[in-house]
Design a protein around this nucleic acid. Structure first.
Lengths: 248, 248
DNA sequence: TCGTTTATTGTCACTCTGACAATAAGCAGT
DNA sequence: ACTGCTTATTGTCAGAGTGACAATAAACGA
């Protein structure tokens, strides 16, 4: 039967079917000093000249969307992924026929999370494909900037997805080194939720899902913090995002 | 500038780019007698002749994926959507180059929820496009049947998405008439989670997000149940899915 | 050594939870 | 009409989890 099936496939002639160009778009997040940043590219050409856009590119014939997302992440940001902790997952697919005025382009949006030491953003190589990839604070961009195509929708959805997902998973730890102190993780939550969580309660609720390495790390001021490692993938019970305006 | 932009678009010549065929696949869920069902089509042609497949079809040049999903839902199941309460949302996009052995096909999977009276499944018109669309219990199919292409992955992801989403939203009410009794909603949770929730606790936790219509409806046996309507979109606090094996 | 800063632990009143009991309200058969 | 059965809804209760905040411990710099 296998040979019969092979014969069928060799004889198969694709019929008429509508075809589209397939791209990936990337929302690349990283956190410094409790502020959530994302990678943007200032558009040089039309349409949307001068507006900010998300990095992205075409999916090649022999790769799937996730693979294309990793490749574009490396090409457009110039990041050495052998050295950087990174996480990429699919967000959603944008397929409105009018989303690119030039032609029919369907884009699979992805969420990428880069680990930082909480102080410096991963360096974006200037010699890369992208004319001018750079980090910008997400909340400021959403408030002030014009974004090309439907990239504002994509960015908003990415932020909401991340904000929701860290409630019941340890995805926030993807934005922090493999070994980290609780204040680093808490700053990620504060950056994403735009909140100011109570340190004591955060410790109580988070430690159950973490492994204590036994080591401590000193900050410039104050008591040294314990170094942890992720133990569980899920948070149970979940952490709930405080309502809009944090208290103090 | 608008005219200049128009001129640019008129002169624009699409360059070389890889192109793919874009389809939608549908996971159509409905609940009867506390059992979760989905629509399947028995494949007549190759490849995967004889296996079960999910309904779906090509996205046309002038529509987006969500529109195509609604259209295919109507065409392949023969459902009159003017009469049926239905909800459709995007699930994820499957783009492995080998997922269809005939050619490069990228599919945007969708989750569709059809409301039922908890006793009968929506009728699938036999005169429709699909050779033999029919309802099958989801858990049985996952246990016993061969599924074409990557449709097992899609079905699994759809189930997990639904199971997770009803924890913190009232999405379960999409599988039930606009006005419903609590036992109907509870049966949806039982069907999706494969659980047997306590009726008293379910009432306590759910009523806060519902509106009491003041009316009651009698079942064949037992006390009449209050008729409710959905008030909130989100459940707070969320309902948590009991661990694997339910108690009784 | 003192004052400042920060991590971690403790406290407390309050809420929410699951398990299960009690009550109320229908139906079917006698 | 009464009995028994079934189901919806409300109640009970001990235990777990919560936010706000206080107390303790452990650095660092002057």
């Amino acid at each position: 039967m296998a040979t019969e099936e092979q014969q069928f496939l060799e004889d198969y002639e694709p019929k008429e079917y509508p075809s589209v160009a397939l791209t990936v778009d990337l929302v690349v997040f990283a956190v410094t000093d409790s502020v959530l940043h994302a990678v943007f590219i200032r558009r040089g050409g039309r349409p949307f000249r001068g507006a900010l856009a998300l990095p992205g590119g075409f999916v090649k014939p022999d790769e799937d969307a996730l693979h294309a997302a990793w490749r574009e992440l490396e090409e457009e940001t110039g990041l050495d992924l052998g050295r950087h902790r990174a996480h990429v997952e699919q967000l959603a697919t944008y397929s409105s026929p009018e989303r690119d005025p030039r032609m029919r382009v369907v884009s699979v949006a992805h969420l990428a999370l880069l680990a930082t030491d909480s102080r410096t953003l991963p360096g974006l190589s200037p010699g890369s494909d992208a004319s001018a990839a750079h980090w910008k604070p997400v909340h400021e961009v959403l408030a002030d900037e014009e974004l090309a195509f439907d990239h504002r929708d994509i960015l908003t959805e990415a932020l909401e997805r991340l904000a929701g997902k860290i409630e019941y998973t340890l995805t926030a730890a993807r934005l922090v080194p493999e070994e980290f102190a609780l204040y680093q993780l808490r700053h990620v939550y504060d950056a994403v939720w735009n909140s100011r969580l109570d340190a004591g309660n955060f410790t109580r609720k988070m430690t159950g899902a973490l492994t204590d390495t036994g080591r401590k790390v000193a900050r410039s001021k104050g008591a040294p913090a314990t170094v942890f490692t992720v133990k569980d993938e899920y948070l149970s019970p979940p952490l709930v995002r405080p309502a809009a305006g944090a208290h103090r």
